[in-house]
């Protein structure tokens, strides 16, 4: 397991579970996604940053940022920001019941999926309490190191005979103000409803969008709530 560097300026490791969950509502966490193919000496890897507030989650890659907002009626609204162009595309909230699970967005792995796994070990207390889970599905072994009170993935791996994918937590920060400022920065981008793109081919940015699709599961979609691997790697 890789070393986890936590910025614990605001969070005491001895905090109660409830207090820890409360204090970790605002998160900026960097992750590395690696893919190791058997026989290849060098693993492919890329990084993304998970940002979250109580009702927003963002996955920030090099160019693109995917944001999900949890609405008052529990619908999830996706927004995709293009950082270079400082533009955004807004999508309609998902309405099909059960199609999306907020915990998948919020903590990268859903509560439902964790419930299917077997707890193999548990260490630490308070905010540093970490649980180790395992699930074997056919020829695939999935392992999870779970910071249960912070609702953060510490590490996860999906191992097959020829391919191993890992998701590893790097630095974490819980400072509310810079996190809110980052969301405000993206929010200031000029946005367009996807429904309006078809009427705006004269806009070079939107015309380019005509030829782009939207991948609903980004790096966080390491696998879905059914444990189905999504191919690994960050789509950004």
């Amino acid at each position: 397991m890789k070393t986890i560097i936590l910025s614990l300026a605001l969070i005491s490791p001895l905090a109660s579970a409830a207090q820890c969950a409360l204090d970790s509502q605002y998160v900026q966490a960097s992750y590395q996604v690696s893919k190791q193919v058997a026989g290849k000496a060098v693993a492919e890897s890329q990084q993304f940053t998970l940002w979250r507030t109580p009702h927003q989650v963002a996955e920030q890659g090099i160019e693109l940022v995917e944001v999900w907002q949890q609405l008052s009626n529990q619908q999830i609204r996706p927004i995709r920001y293009f950082q270079t162009q400082q533009r955004g595309i807004e999508y309609q909230p998902s309405e099909v019941q059960g199609q999306q699970n907020w915990s998948t967005k919020y903590q990268l792995v859903s509560d439902d999926f964790i419930a299917k796994m077997t707890l193999t070990d548990e260490q630490g207390d308070g905010c540093e309490k970490i649980q180790h889970y395992q699930l074997v599905q056919g020829d695939t072994t999935i392992e999870l190191a779970w910071l249960v009170n912070q609702k953060l993935v510490s590490a996860m791996s999906i191992g097959k005979a020829q391919l191993t994918q890992t998701l590893t937590l790097g630095t974490v920060d819980f400072k509310k103000d810079p996190i809110q400022q980052q969301f405000a920065l993206w929010d200031a981008y000029q946005t367009t409803d996807y429904a309006d793109i078809g009427d705006n081919e004269g806009d070079p940015f939107l015309a380019k969008m005509i030829n782009l699709g939207f991948i609903e599961h980004g790096a966080s979609g390491f696998y879905d709530t059914n444990g189905k691997a999504l191919g690994g790697g960050h789509s950004h």
Partner: peptide, 9 residues
Amino acid sequence: DADAGYKFA
């Protein structure tokens, strides 16, 4: 919601 289709390539 027809616009739900935009979430796919």
